[in-house]
Amino acid sequence: MDPSGRFYSDDSGASGEQFREEHLLPALQNLQPGEKIIVILDDGPESYGSSFLTEGFAGIVKYGYMEARPLLDALEIEYTDPDYEFFEKKIKKYISEAKFASKDYKSTK
């Protein structure tokens, strides 16, 4: 199943909201000092739409879970296909541009 859609309510089964709430956020919460989360972009997914990336990554900042700088420091993004550099840049851009705690999170599940 490819990552797609912004919210659970988009019926994609692999939305940005789901990725953030069920995978990225728990991993961040369990992160020990000095550890990083390795995000491998090209180990199966065909691509990542902006809706997925903004909600999945920038949502961490937007809903006030973590500030942008420490989030960027906690992530190590990897890929072997050079086309996926496009998505790495987007992830970093969206995180950097997100306003900390600018929105209250309400699950769409």
Binding site: P3, S4, G5, D10, G49, S50, D83, F87
Partner: peptide, 19 residues
């Protein structure tokens, strides 16, 4: 060439259908 970039556009078009 650049299929993942096209696919991300298609993914957004499909999301637009949902939303």
């Amino acid at each position: 060439s650049k299929w993942p970039i096209l696919n991300s556009g298609l993914s957004e078009a499909i999301t637009n259908v949902s939303q």
